[in-house]
Design a binder for these strands. Structure first.
Lengths: 342, 342
DNA sequence: CTGAAAGCGCTTACAG
DNA sequence: CTGAAAGCGCTTACAG
């Protein structure tokens, strides 16, 4: 196993030029009218020596690295690491590799990372944007870098997005509660302008209004877990008539469930509980909790597809059509929303 | 913002040669006796134009990519994604990037991935080996690639490892149970030759033997969760005198806790419970469960440090000193192991 | 049907 | 103290 194999060696061995070898290697044998005989001979030698073209040299020449930059708040969050796993799989199958970084939601850090990615000449970007970073991101896409955003949506940034259909999933979940006989459904969310949270709220509101019910919403100004739990407690105490409650995000579900650890279990146990975002705990505890599960596989598949389409389209038509893909989530129905025996 | 900035432009602008610019950029100004005046002038122009050398060209020339390949079973497992996050952080701070892949414990896949990594000319590897892959891995390190293994230990592979100190952590945890008055401690593990599991078992065995207690061990031939839960149930029923139980891995803890969902809670509730591996659920349920928490931050820091040391040592002394670093885990003491009121 | 040569953007031995 | 030039290993116009 000699390390130094290069196209030159192959050319010498076959007795032809590196040009011809390169053509054959790049599948341009036909196009360039290389004789079948020569083509076969080259392929045979290449196979025998297990020669693989140096990807760095190729990158330098072509300007393409076949590397995609993946940028999220925190790669260790289950949602993001789940996405990462599938994206790597899909991208690998198409010859791309992923490099990633976690921003920790730090503005300075995100600029640095984008710089590093650019410096590494990544072909494209996959990003879950955090708010407050519009500027950096805006610069990125106006620089025409191929980018696909996911998870978060920023209306002011006109780009390609792949998102969970927050509105529809929440509407479906709310309808599920109504179907099972729950009439007074409360909704716990945070006080924010984040589009995905607004969509979830809207999905809930529209659905309860359809049956002329009055939305009852708690908007928490989120500072920390304890405070949030406290506010949920007050909300439940002040609205004893609620017979179901939807938590609009995993951490809110956790904060709500924490009530049972404070000896306040009766506040929740009398009601149906439904969580936006699913996680192991919800299936495990008793009663198990119905949850909206983000469609990680489908999200990842669409992210990769969309990005690769943009990469292959090349410079040709990078303006024009922006796509915002919304993918339906799954509703995992469990004990916590079982039909009322009334 | 012109895209085409190259070292040539800088040289022209300053009125010097690319050689000189390169020396200055690489911090060899002093060494190469470039005048301070020229050095400053170059640095100023570089700063003004925000010029950054093309990393691909540099890689082609130097043979170094400043990329590290990270290989695990499944990047979305919390332990691995936690490690990934910290490794990325530490490595980024030193100018390295991580590319990753999940093997899914598939032999063919691992060969492919190692090939891809090699093809990408990664400078080094960080790998959690799975058993059965000794061959591929052996080839890798005999090829003198800089590798650091973590999480798993394969005695037959003489390489660098960074590991949780499974023996010591389990011994400490067992001692904690003894200190709190538990006398008859059971140990649930799997039937395996995996070194880390053997070490955990040994940590338990040695500790109970110190107080002349008899080890009571359940070794499960692991097929699936249901079967495992069933075996744990039988073990508990056949050994009603046990007053404490240690689960040697997170999935075993889960299988054990599942008993409570089957209405068998009394089997466990009368005993102290301790888990090797910590996760959210354990802190959350009631009673909360004492757990050994793998020291992710310290593991990651040591992995990166060790690998970079090897990279920087270069060809000079890659033989010789192998290191096996064992890092102590934290014991998170919770309600499930509280002192017996006897 | 095939090849000589330029060039991607660097680093570094060599020469002055 | 500084620069011209080779070369890393490819791809691809251009010429035959």
């Amino acid at each position: 196993m000699q390390e130094k194999l290069s196209i030159k060696h192959i050319a010498n061995l076959v007795g032809t030029s590196i040009t011809t070898v390169s053509f054959v290697l790049n599948g341009k044998a036909k196009e360039k009218h290389i004789s079948e005989k020569l083509t076969e001979k080259i392929l045979k030698v290449v196979a025998e020596l297990d020669y693989q073209p140096n990807s760095i040299a190729r990158s330098l020449r072509t300007g393409k690295t076949k590397i995609i930059g993946f940028l999220v708040d925190d790669i260790s969050k289950p949602f993001f690491s789940g996405i990462a796993r599938v994206i790597d799989q899909k991208a690998s199958a198409r010859g791309y590799k992923i490099i990633f970084s976690s921003t920790g939601n730090d503005k300075k850090r995100i600029s640095e990372i984008l710089n590093i990615f650019k410096d590494r000449h990544v072909d494209g970007y996959i990003i879950a944007i955090a708010e407050g970073l519009e500027e950096e991101i805006g610069r990125l896409i106006s620089g025409k870098a191929p980018v696909v955003f996911f998870d978060r949506y920023l209306p002011e940034i006109d780009a390609d997005y792949v998102l969970t259909d927050n509105f529809q999933s929440t509407a479906t979940a709310t309808q599920h509660l109504l179907d099972n006989g729950f009439k007074k459904i409360g909704f716990v969310t945070i006080d924010t302008e984040q589009q995905q949270m607004l969509d979830r709220l809207q999905g809930y509101t529209d659905t309860v209004k359809k049956v002329k019910a009055k939305p009852q919403v708690l908007k928490i100004k989120y500072t920390n877990s304890e405070d949030s739990t406290e506010k949920i407690k007050s909300f439940l105490q002040e609205n004893p008539d609620l017979d179901a409650i939807i938590f609009a995000a995993n951490y809110l579900t956790m904060d709500g469930l924490r009530l049972s650890r404070l000896g306040m279990e009766q506040l929740l146990s009398s009601k149906a509980v439904l969580s936006f975002d699913d996680f192991e705990l919800l299936e495990f505890i008793s009663p198990s909790i119905t949850a909206i599960e983000q469609p990680i596989e489908a999200l990842a598949e669409n992210i990769v597809q969309l990005l690769l389409k943009k990469l292959n389209a090349g410079e040709s038509k990078n303006s024009g059509e922006r796509s915002v893909l919304k993918i339906n989530a799954n509703l995992n129905i469990r004990q916590s929303t079982q039909t009322l025996v009334s």
